[in-house]
Design a protein around this nucleic acid. Structure first.
Length: 111
DNA sequence: AGTGTGACACTGG
DNA sequence: TCCAGTGCCACAC
C-alpha cells in the first residue's frame, strides 16, 4: 500500500480537489498530470478510485460532459443523483451548463 | 518482456 | 451534431 503510483495518486489528488458543485474531464486531469494524451489512463485510475470513497469519481466526466462512467457505479443513476445533489443539472447522463460547472485543475492553482 | 485493455480525445466524413 | 476510425499512454496479467 502507499505505493504512490505517481500517476494514479495524482489523479486521486486532483479529483479530491474538485470543489462542490463542479466537475472536470479526464483530459483536464491528464493535462494537469502532464499526460494530456493519457486521458484514458485517468479513467482507469478512476476505475480503482471508485473503490475509494475519498475520490468523488462522480465529479469526473468526459469532455462532452457525459457521465460515461456512471455505468461503473453501484446503482444505475447513482452518479447522476450525486451530481444533481450538488446542484448540477444532468439530463440523459449528460451534464447541462457544463461550462458553468466545469472546473479546471490548473485554475485551482491560480486561485 | 509482451499482449490486452481502458470511465478519452481528436480527426475525418 | 453524430458516427467511425485512429492514437495515445500507463497499468494489469
Amino acid at each position: 500500500m502507499e505505493k504512490s503510483d505517481n500517476f494514479f495518486d495524482k489523479v486521486y489528488d486532483v479529483v479530491r480537489l474538485i470543489p462542490f458543485g463542479r466537475v472536470t474531464s479526464y483530459g483536464a486531469i491528464g493535462a494537469y498530470l502532464g499526460a494530456e494524451k493519457s486521458a484514458r489512463m485517468v479513467g482507469w485510475a478512476m476505475n480503482k478510485a471508485h473503490n475509494l470513497e475519498d475520490v468523488p469519481a462522480h465529479r469526473v466526466v468526459n469532455k462532452k460532459g457525459l457521465l460515461t462512467g456512471k455505468h461503473h457505479f453501484d446503482g444505475t443513476n447513482l452518479m447522476q443523483q450525486l451530481l444533481e445533489n450538488e446542484g448540477i443539472v444532468v439530463v440523459d447522463n449528460q451534464i447541462q451548463n457544463l461550462e458553468k460547472v466545469f472546473w479546471h485543475p490548473l485554475e485551482d492553482e491560480l486561485s
